[in-house]
Design a protein around this nucleic acid. Structure first.
Lengths: 113, 113
DNA sequence: TGGCATGACATAGAGAGTCTATGTCACGGC
DNA sequence: GCCGTGACATAGACTCTCTATGTCATGCCA
């Protein structure tokens, strides 16, 4: 039977980018939704643990890249809904650009002439 | 004038893979050569600091993925020459495969339908 | 011959970021 | 009225890269 632990870890430094991107695409979302969306969009390759998710969301709030607002889910649970800010959009653009530049450089090393 | 600090950092977790790949391509190499080769192959996007390089080489020695042998450079400086082992080749293959799987997943999130 | 820049390796400590494990709290079904 | 569950939260361990510093021998050059 296949291992139940065959998911990869989120590469350090990329979680913030993935969260910002997910909130940008989905609009206002709460933590659980964001984590699920990342896992789904990665076809189950990446799984965001709660112990990584919530500290990351705090960072993004503190830096002003997200704003949070307490609300209620469809099942009437309390939840914090996050929205991206203008600064967050700018930051996301920077991170995506940097990510692609680095990924391209690594690709050049892995696939030498 | 352009900033002289516009290089990106090596993403945590990828340095070992880049070193193994570089030693595989170049054959027997010493530390300085490896760092320079990575920087060149990345078209100067990535720079390996000595404080990252030597601990990484120690890790790879301890894990048995590289073997090291003291020798002399062309300029008669002492240097440690590293060669990849069979286990190192296997490990490199694993890391490259995992890297591509994760990169693909992240790409899917960044470029949504 | 004596100082000194340099090549090459090495280590200590800081800082960032993810993970595991655990805890809290309120809703709502039974 | 209890308890599973959704959702948020924190503490601590661990990994890894960086900055800063140190060592040591070679060979140039005054």
């Amino acid at each position: 039977m296949p291992s139940h632990q065959d998911r990869d870890e989120i590469p350090p430094g990329t979680l913030d980018m993935l969260i910002l991107q997910t909130v940008t695409r989905r609009g206002e979302s709460h933590g659980f939704e964001i984590a699920e969306a990342i896992q789904r969009a990665s076809t189950d390759v990446l799984q965001v643990e709660e112990g990584s998710l919530y500290p990351a969301l705090q960072r993004l709030l503190i830096k002003g890249w997200l704003v949070g607002e307490w609300g209620r889910t469809a099942e009437n649970r309390r939840a914090r809904y996050y929205t991206i800010t203008a600064a967050g959009r700018k930051q996301l653009a920077h991170e995506v650009e940097s990510y692609h530049r680095v990924a391209h450089a690594i690709g050049a090393i892995l696939r030498p002439v």
